[in-house]
Design a protein around this nucleic acid. Structure first.
Lengths: 349, 349
DNA sequence: TTGTATGCGTTATCAT
DNA sequence: ATGATAACGCATACAA
């Protein structure tokens, strides 16, 4: 009904003449309409106290009626900050990283920052490119479990500053770091399996570029020494990888399978179920991370639990401080806790 | 070894005196150092062909040696486009949305666009605010399974344009839409359960604000008519919700449980396992989405499989077209496929 | 308290 | 082919 009210209701008569290319309605339009200067509009929009209350109200009303919304890009340029914080993860599909993300999102959100998320898909070469690129559009960066080499990371560190490292210490880089003492987790796993009498253990190895993987493998190897035979099986980081590595793990004669992470462990468990191998009666399975699902599978997964959201929160605590020009809190290293559930049991013989 | 090659290689001698507040090195620094105008540097950086080859090389070298990197924000302002596409999802923790994300990320990435991801945490009120905000920093928006009311969405539609809707049709909004015909999926489920002889079915209901939930419930109710008794059980969208709703579902005397999504179904399955109810011998379980994990649980989950990555890809196909000023392809509606696995079986009696 | 003028870093238009 | 110069939209130091 209201549609064709006026006969010649073209926008020509309404306000300004021709439309610009960029923003539909700018701060100047509001200023003009309200009969004030752009500066005043800016002040009103940013709640500067130095504006007469009634004027402020008038400006707000005209702004609202015009549907004015400040350009985030222009603000970013003028202020020298975007209000964005970038985070790069190896695999968004991994619930572990999601939890870190959530922790970061919550913490940063409280300070008015939004997240720019990028997924490097476990590709070490793309990782730093992505990180640099996203850092360019954000005020800071959280590098989560980077797969890149120490050397390259150190070389490019200055291009992504300020940033904080999660889940990895890098030689020659002094960025604030939030880490997990996986070695202690591995030792707890070994103690647990040893106590259950396991003498042959298979480790489903993660991505070669993953530092946590190397740490887990090496700690495992060291702990195995004189306690049990360790077989390292090539695998990966995803469900499918665990699923198809299970056979090979079994072929080693292992009575216990340690997955690189929960996804891999659950994938392996899926395969074991499919081929009729009972867990934990015939084979025990252990994972890392304690993703939410680990609590709901059958059998429920024994895993090394890391405080995932805390990692994100602590990361922001450091990055936020740097953005405020303050000195970031000291590095932190969480000690994981072995969550013993149903997927581990006594060795057969 | 190569470290301390030059004796006095301090940056003091090299270039300009004092640092500015914003960018460390700008296009003007490069221009000055190369003895050309900023315009030429810009042309070189953007691979404009109209620059003499040797000059271009020289500029590239000075740019590289100065470590110059164009400001994405300034480019955004000048070009009128950010190269960012925003996506808002109800729950990043849901693998279903991750898959959509991946599909979108891949497709948009091929066109040089990056993703700005925001999670509304299933809060209808925050959703549109977040969407507006992120849209402000991006060139377009993908609204994934929005929980907001039709009316509000229609009212604010103009503030988030251009955008495309995934997994939801909205009355009064003519944005391109990529959807799934869940009703047909529900009917397939009913046929399947009916054929198995189930006469009492419990539906674990998702978030009240979820339109897909309403659609599933209503289609279920319609299909139940004269075929089986349907009990709707309040639940939610996450693992925990399914876990704690399982008891109530069981209390209805149902021999089959249909979860709002796979997460809920798996959560329920976890509870059933814990209390010793065998699936599918005693109770059948069905989910929606077909998240990767559904293939690996014990028992493997029967579920309504939707082409998750395709949703993201198709969304970009439409948004990308709009950004290029073209007309987006016609709306698309995928027909899901019932993936019968192990969690469903004949009814007891 | 409000307005003017300039800067933010780049792109693009117009000369040359 | 290259160089001034004006947008782009907003914030802010300074002036009034």
């Amino acid at each position: 009904m209201d549609e064709a009210a006026g006969p010649v209701a073209g926008p020509a008569e309404t306000g300004a003449g021709q439309r610009r290319r960029g923003q539909t309605v700018t701060i100047r339009d509001v200023a003009r309409a309200a009969g004030v200067s752009p500066a005043t509009v800016s002040r009103v929009m940013n709640n500067r106290e130095t504006v007469a209350p009634d004027l402020a109200r008038r400006v707000q009303q005209t702004a609202a009626s015009l549907g004015y919304r400040p350009s985030a890009v222009a603000q970013g340029l003028a202020r020298g900050r975007t209000g964005l914080v970038a985070i790069t993860v190896p695999d968004l599909g991994n619930p572990m990283f999601q939890s870190v993300l959530r922790g970061l999102s919550r913490a940063a959100g409280r300070d008015g920052y939004r997240l720019l998320v990028t997924d490097s898909h476990e590709l070490p070469l793309e990782e730093l490119v992505l990180a640099q690129e996203s850092r360019l559009r954000a005020d800071g960066l959280v590098l989560c479990s980077p797969r890149s080499h120490d050397r390259e990371l150190a070389e490019l560190a200055h291009t992504i500053e300020p940033f904080v490292l999660v889940n990895r210490n890098v030689e020659g880089v002094d960025a604030p770091t939030v880490a997990v003492d996986y070695a202690s987790g591995v030792r707890a796993v070994c103690a647990h399996l040893g106590w259950l009498g396991h003498s042959r253990v298979a480790y489903l190895e993660g991505p070669r570029a993953s530092v946590p993987n190397r740490e887990r493998r090496e700690t495992l190897e060291a702990a195995a020494e004189g306690r049990f035979a360790l077989h390292v099986v090539e695998c990966g980081s995803m469900l499918e990888d665990g699923f198809e590595a299970a056979d090979r793990a079994l072929a080693t004669g292992a009575t216990a399978i340690v997955g690189y992470n929960d996804l891999v462990a659950l994938g392996a468990q899926g395969k074991l179920d499919e081929i009729g191998v009972r867990v934990p009666d015939q084979v025990s399975v252990v994972g890392f991370d304690d993703i939410p699902l680990s609590r709901y599978t059958a059998p429920r997964l024994t895993t090394v639990a890391v405080p995932q959201e805390d990692l994100g929160r602590e990361a922001w605590q450091r990055l936020g401080a740097m953005l405020r020009g303050e000195a970031p809190p000291a590095d932190v290293c969480f000690t994981p806790r072995l969550e013993v559930r149903q997927s581990t049991g006594p060795a057969l013989r």
